[in-house]
C-alpha cells in the first residue's frame, strides 16, 4: 500500500465522506469522542493544523458548548438558575456533544483540504465532466494572476504619484482605480487566452480529461475497507440509544455498539496507520540495503 497522500483522489474523497458523514450525523457521545480524538491526532500527525488553528478550535468548542444550555432550558436536572432561567445538566451535555461534533468536523475538514489539493479535486470533477474540470483549473489560474497583477498595478500607480493613501477617501478611490485597471487589463488580454485555446483545438470536438493519477488495486481495497468499516459503524449506531431530553438515557455499550465504535475508531485511524506502516517498511528497506 502507498502513503495516504499517494492514494487516488477518489479514494481519499470517499474516505473523508465516510468519516465526515458519521461525525456530522451521529450525535452520539462515544462516536464523537472517537472522532474528535482521532481527528486531532491526524492533524497533529500530518501537521496540517498550526498552533493558531488549535487555539481557534478550542475557543469555538467552549463557546459552542456553553451557548446551548444558555438558550435551551429543557432537562430535569437543574444545576443552577441564571436570571431566573434554569441551567440544566442535560442541555450542557448536549452542548458539549454538539461542540465536539463541530470541532471534530472542523479538524477533519482541515485534514481533508490538506490531503485534497486543487489538482486532486479537479481530477475528481473531471471524471464526471471535463468542462467543469477545465473551469476550475482556469479559475484557480485567474485567482493567482489577479493577485499578482493587483500588486503590480498598485505599485505602479504609487510610483507614478497617482495613488494617495493619506486618508480613507483617497485610499478607497485609489483602490477603485486599481480595480478598474485590473479589469481592463484582464479583459483586453483575455482575447489572447481565448485565441490560444481555439488554436489548440478547444471546441473542435469532444474533450477528454487527463490527470496524472491512476486507480490501483490498493485504492480499490482502501475504498472497500473504508465502506465496510462505515457500514459496521452505522449498524453499531442503529443499535445504540442516545436520548438527551428530558432526562439522559445512553445505551452505548451494546455488543453491536462496541463493534461499531471499534470499526469507526479503526476507520478514523487509517491515515495514521497507513503512514506509519509505510514509514516502518521504508526503514526496514533502508536497513537491508
Amino acid at each position: 500500500m502507498k502513503r495516504f497522500s499517494d492514494l487516488n483522489p477518489i479514494a481519499t474523497a470517499v474516505y473523508y465522506m465516510c468519516v465526515l458523514g458519521i461525525t456530522m450525523f451521529s450525535m452520539q457521545p462515544l462516536m464523537l469522542c472517537i472522532s474528535l480524538v482521532t481527528s486531532i491526532l491526524t492533524c497533529v500527525y500530518d501537521r496540517s493544523v498550526k498552533v493558531k488553528g488549535h487555539i481557534f478550535t478550542a475557543v469555538l468548542f467552549l463557546i459552542a458548548a456553553v451557548i446551548n444550555p444558555l438558550f435551551v432550558h429543557n432537562g430535569v436536572t437543574v444545576l443552577f438558575y441564571l436570571n431566573d432561567n434554569p441551567f440544566t445538566l442535560e442541555a450542557l451535555v448536549y452542548g458539549i456533544v454538539a461542540a465536539g461534533m463541530i470541532a471534530a468536523a472542523l479538524y477533519w475538514l482541515r485534514s481533508m483540504s490538506a490531503a485534497l489539493s486543487s489538482d486532486k479535486i479537479m481530477y475528481i470533477f473531471g471524471r464526471f465532466s471535463p468542462k467543469i474540470a477545465l473551469i476550475i483549473s482556469m479559475s484557480l489560474r485567474y485567482i493567482g494572476l489577479f493577485k499578482e497583477r493587483f500588486r503590480k498595478i498598485q505599485n505602479t500607480q504609487r510610483a507614478l504619484g497617482l495613488y494617495d493613501d493619506g486618508n480613507l477617501i483617497d485610499a478607497l478611490r485609489g483602490r477603485a482605480r486599481v480595480l478598474s485597471i485590473l479589469i481592463t487589463w484582464t479583459l483586453e488580454n483575455g482575447i489572447v487566452t481565448a485565441e490560444s485555446m481555439e488554436a489548440r483545438g478547444y471546441m473542435s470536438g469532444r474533450r477528454t480529461s487527463y490527470a496524472p493519477y491512476r486507480i490501483h488495486m490498493a485504492d480499490i481495497s482502501f475504498i472497500a475497507l473504508s465502506l465496510a468499516l462505515t457500514a459496521i459503524a452505522i449498524i453499531g449506531l442503529r443499535n445504540t440509544q442516545t436520548v438527551f431530553y428530558p432526562d439522559m438515557r445512553f445505551e452505548l455499550f451494546t455488543p453491536w455498539g462496541i463493534a461499531g465504535a471499534a470499526a469507526f475508531a479503526l476507520l478514523c485511524l487509517l491515515p495514521i496507520i497507513i503512514n506509519i506502516k509505510e514509514a516502518v517498511k521504508w526503514r526496514l528497506l533502508i536497513s537491508k540495503a
Partner: peptide, 25 residues
C-alpha cells in the same frame, strides 16, 4: 504567440501540456 502569460489556460504545467490533446479528445 508573443505574450507568455496570456497563452496559458490552466493553473498547472501538466494540465497545460495536456490541454491540446484533451481538446482533441
Amino acid at each position: 504567440a508573443q505574450n507568455p502569460d496570456e497563452q496559458f489556460v490552466t493553473d498547472k504545467v501538466w494540465h497545460e501540456l495536456a490541454f491540446t490533446l484533451e481538446s482533441l479528445g
